[in-house]
């Protein structure tokens, strides 16, 4: 099976990529640790807030709008993922695929229109 061999080999090389991608920053940080000066004092470690005294922590509750968009994203991303296998075999399925995806796309667009009309897509 040449396909299976190609698959295993590809995974091995992707692993090499990953190892190098992690090794480069680690090596670079170590090098920089050896080369750079270390003069730390308390004021230097203060949070930067345009020169004024920092007010409280930044780990606060954040505006909920972001989570609405995140929910929308999860929804559409999963649906998009479903479209991918369909697109790959599109040629081989013929009219059945077209009809089925028309139904699916209708639901997708319906959801978008619903969110649109509800005003979820406005950023106020």
């Amino acid at each position: 099976m040449p396909a299976a061999v190609a698959y295993t080999n590809s995974l091995i090389f992707i692993a090499v990529f990953l190892v190098l991608a992690v090794a480069l920053p680690v090596v670079a940080f170590t090098m920089s640790r050896l080369l750079r000066p270390h003069h730390f004092y308390r004021e230097k470690g203060e949070t930067y807030e345009s020169g004024t005294q920092p007010l409280g922590t930044s780990w606060v509750r954040f505006r909920v709008k972001y989570y609405l968009f995140a929910l929308l994203f999860v929804l559409f991303d999963v649906e998009t993922l479903f479209l991918y296998p369909w697109a790959v075999v599109y040629d081989r399925l013929g009219w059945f695929a077209v009809a089925e995806m028309a139904v699916f796309l209708f639901l997708l667009v319906f959801g978008l229109v619903y969110a649109w009309r509800k005003g979820v897509l406005e950023w106020k």
């Binding site: 590809s10 995974l11 992707i14």
Partner: peptide, 22 residues
């Protein structure tokens, strides 16, 4: 940084040079 380099694994550069074929 790491993902930025890992994505190059699947980008074939020419018909002769490719680091993976998935």
């Amino acid at each position: 940084f790491a993902p930025a380099f890992v994505v190059f694994a699947v980008l074939p550069l020419t018909d002769r040079i490719a680091f993976s074929d998935i």
